[in-house]
Simulated assay, not measured.
Amino acid sequence: MSKKEDINKEPISENGMEKEQQNPETEAAVDQKDEVNEGPSELEKLEAEMAIEKDKFLRLFAEFENYKRRTAKERIELFKTAGQDIMSSLLPVLDDFDRAMSEISKTKEKELLKGVELIRQKMKTVLGSQGLSEIEAAAGDNFDAEIHDAITQIPAPSEDLKGKIVDVIEKGYTLSDKIIRHPKVVVGQQ
């Protein structure tokens, strides 16, 4: 063979067969077919996995923030009412002071009345500083079933007391805006 014939011949591949010359457009079409057959690329897979993990992280973070907020609120509520048992056990003592005051006021012992009144006021002040406050209820006030505990109903002594409080049997108290004992009242029948 001459050199001229070698130049005109198609290049021979490594396996001894002639290489076909391919058009650049057909090469691009073959590459696209390969991509379609392969599915999503590795980069797309990683991006999808990262999006899923990011979503999980954000949900977990939000759940943790809600947990922190909820436990902080519960802790504040616990501190507000931590002394509720002690306060509830001291309420009968306050009632006894009120009874003692009414009995001592019937006697002529004004110095004794003054001493008991000072002790009662001091105790109310100390308990008040801890969040205890008395629920105001008096004869003639409107009866509210949410606040008052009606222990009985009696015929109203007058027209204006029908459906209203006639007498307060036991005082009610709140501890940091939470009712720990409802006032026990007598209500006039309508």
Score class of each variant (00 low, 15 high):
Asn15Ser: 12
Asn15His: 08
Asn15Met: 03
Asn15Tyr: 04
Asn15Arg: 11
Gly16Arg: 03
Gly16His: 02
Met17Lys: 13
Met17His: 04
Met17Gly: 09
Met17Asp: 06
Glu18Gly: 02
Glu18Asn: 05
Glu18Leu: 12
Glu18Pro: 10
Glu18Ala: 05
Glu18Arg: 00
Lys19Pro: 08
Glu20Gln: 14
Gln21Gly: 01
Gln21Pro: 09
Gln22Thr: 15
Gln22Arg: 12
Gln22Tyr: 14
Gln22Gly: 11
Asn23Leu: 01
Asn23Phe: 08
Asn23Tyr: 11
Asn23Lys: 12
Pro24Asn: 00
Pro24Cys: 07
Glu25Cys: 09
Thr26Ile: 01
Glu27Lys: 03
Ala28Asp: 05
Ala28Lys: 08
Ala29Tyr: 13
Val30Pro: 00
Val30Ala: 05
Val30Glu: 14
Val30Asp: 04
Asp31Tyr: 08
Gln32His: 09
Gln32Pro: 01
Lys33Gln: 15
Lys33Thr: 13
Asp34Met: 12
Asp34Ile: 12
Glu35Val: 02
Glu35Asp: 04
Glu35Gly: 01
Val36Pro: 00
Val36Asp: 15
Val36Arg: 14
Asn37Met: 15
Asn37Gly: 14
Asn37Ala: 15
Glu38Asn: 13
Glu38Lys: 14
Gly39Thr: 09
Pro40Leu: 06
Glu42Cys: 13
Glu42Gln: 15
Glu44Phe: 11
Lys45Tyr: 06
Leu46Asn: 09
Glu47Lys: 11
Glu47Ser: 11
Ala48Asn: 04
Ala48Ser: 08
Glu49Ile: 02
Glu49Asp: 13
Glu49Leu: 09
Met50Ile: 12
Met50Ala: 10
Ala51Gln: 07
Ala51Asn: 01
Ile52Cys: 08
Glu53Arg: 09
Glu53Lys: 05
Lys54Asn: 01
